[in-house]
Design a protein around this nucleic acid. Structure first.
Lengths: 168, 168
DNA sequence: CTTGGAATGTCAACAAAGCTGACGTATTAT
DNA sequence: ATAATACGTCAGCTTTGTTGACATTCCAAG
């Protein structure tokens, strides 16, 4: 598209060339593989998948969350989430309790077993993240987060921001 | 794990707390959804998936690449790639030519039609990336790339670096 | 020249994880 | 009373990944 030299304004816009953007795109692709690699190995042993990891992660983050809330965070259909949730409940990693205020709702919590798996998964994922953060330094980390936040959809950012405030 | 206040060294290591790392993890999760959302919409119209996008992207990046090379970039099995490649070839988006030096190899190129889809997909993805870059600024972008590179596996980084050098 | 190994392709079978659509059952809200 | 909400479930389909087995073609080394 604009593969030619961009018009120079006051400050350099060279970081917005198609070439730079393409590198960013490929960096996201390759980095995301690394990002999921370690938890994936642990999950494979227990014959769970990434979908289980995501459910466990967000139940851990928001203990007592309802199915509907989890649904809107994860952005999948209830049938898809239900399949995952059912196995986690059957396997005793999650428990689902009827709400006292609104009895239609189910509140989800990790059992001690579920919490143990959550810890194993997030330890593995954090280890890599920590190494990357340490290698890049605090200024780079701030930039990393800024760009990612700017890349999110509206509602994803809403969920992300909502999580941010807890346990600060 | 180390949810308590970390020991302070000379410079602040507060950016390595579990809390900070968790935010980074969630940022990656939510941002990746945004990252793929726009191309996904285009792909859905033509009833292709992300796997097709990835193949098209890297064939565009490395015209004439062999199946084996593509395999190692994408990190999937040949059966999985072959299914995707077959539909792209049948649909006339990619063509596969027997190598003249080594006739076992197939060299992959985008047809004009394939190149057109590639452009549509990468335009959509770049638009979002550009908006994020612009919003975050050049310093943040540098940090973004540094952290992502540090997060990659060895061989992913090899592939990434190899791509980097072309058309610089 | 023959043979072993590499690169590719194909068949079959399967699993994870997404989707749509339809339906049932509590429970709550209007 | 009726409508809407929250949840679960059945059935069926798609994409994208996996293993395993096997054929073909070709290069290179013995």
């Amino acid at each position: 598209m604009n593969d030619t030299v961009p018009p120079q304004t006051g400050q350099s816009l060279l970081f917005l060339t198609d070439e730079q953007l393409r590198k960013g795109i490929e960096a996201m692709f390759f980095a995301y593989r690394g990002f999921t690699a370690d938890p994936d190995r642990i999950l494979a042993e227990k014959s769970y998948g990434r979908a289980h990891h995501r459910a466990i992660h967000f139940i851990h983050r928001s203990p007592g969350t309802t199915v509907n809330n989890l649904l809107s965070i994860l952005g999948v259909t209830k049938q898809s989430l239900n399949r995952v949730l059912r196995t986690l409940i059957e396997d005793g990693l999650v428990d689902s309790t009827v709400g006292q205020a609104d009895k239609r709702e189910r509140h989800l919590h990790l059992t001690p077993e579920g919490a143990a798996l959550e810890r194993a998964l997030s330890d593995a994922q954090r280890d890599r993240m920590r190494a990357a953060y340490r290698a890049a330094g605090p200024a780079a980390v701030a930039g990393f987060r800024q760009v990612l936040e700017a890349m999110m959809d509206e509602d994803a950012r809403r969920h992300y921001e909502a999580m941010k405030d807890r346990s600060e």
